[in-house]
Amino acid sequence: MRAIRLIMQRELAQYFSSPLAYLIAGAFLLLTGVTFYSDLNFSLGVRPVEPALIPNLLAQVMIVFAPLLTMRLLSEENREGTMELLLTAPVSDGNIVFGKFLSAWAYYTFILLLTLLYQFILVNIALPDISHTIAAYLGIWMYGGAALAVGLLFSATTENQILAAFMATIALLLLYYGDSLGRVVASADLAYILFNLTLQGHYAASFAIGAVRAEDIVYYAGLIVVALFIAIRVIESKRWR
C-alpha cells in the first residue's frame, strides 16, 4: 500500500509540474466551456438544459484525452531505464502499475471536478435535474477510469510515447464504436451482445439518461481490472527477456 501511495504521489507531482498536463486541462476546459455556453444559449428558447451535457461530451473526448494522459506513465520509464530501478526496488509489479493508474485517475478526477463549475452556474440560473447530472458524472468517472486503464496498458508495451498514445486511441475507438458492427449484422442478438461490449453501450444507454445500473459499474470496473492485469503481465514479461 505504501509503495502504491509513493508511486502515485510521484506521478501526481509529475502531472502538476508538466506543461502537457496543463495543456490538456486547458483544452479540456475550453472544450467543455464552449459546449456549455452554446447549450446554454440554445436552451434559452428551444429546450431545457441537458443535465448530462458535459459527461456526454467527455465520453467521446476521452478517446483522445485518456491516451494523452497515460502515454507517458510506463513508456517513459522503459525508455529512460528507470524501469530497471523500479523493478529492482522492493515493490511488486502490481504496485507499480496500480500506483501509476491511480495517479492518472486522480488527475482525471481533478479536471472532472473543475467542470462542476458549470453545474454551479446552472443551479444558480435554472432548475436542472441534479440527480441526473450526478448519475452522468458517476458514469463518466468510471468510464474515464476504464479508458485510462486501457491507455496505461499500451504505455507498458512500448518505449515510444506517441506509439503508446496512438495504439491506445485505436483500441478505445474500437471499444467505443465497436457496436457499429452490430448495425451491419443481421442478428439482433449479436448486435445486442456487441453493443454491451462497448464503452458506449454502458454509458449512452444508462448513465447518460440518469440511470445507475450495477452492470455498467461492473463493466467499467471489470475493464479496469483486465487492462491493469495485462499491463502487469507485460511488465513481468520484460524480466524474462
Partner: peptide, 10 residues
Amino acid sequence: PERVPVYLDM
C-alpha cells in the same frame, strides 16, 4: 545500472 537512469523532472 550502467545507464544511470534518473527522473529528469524531480
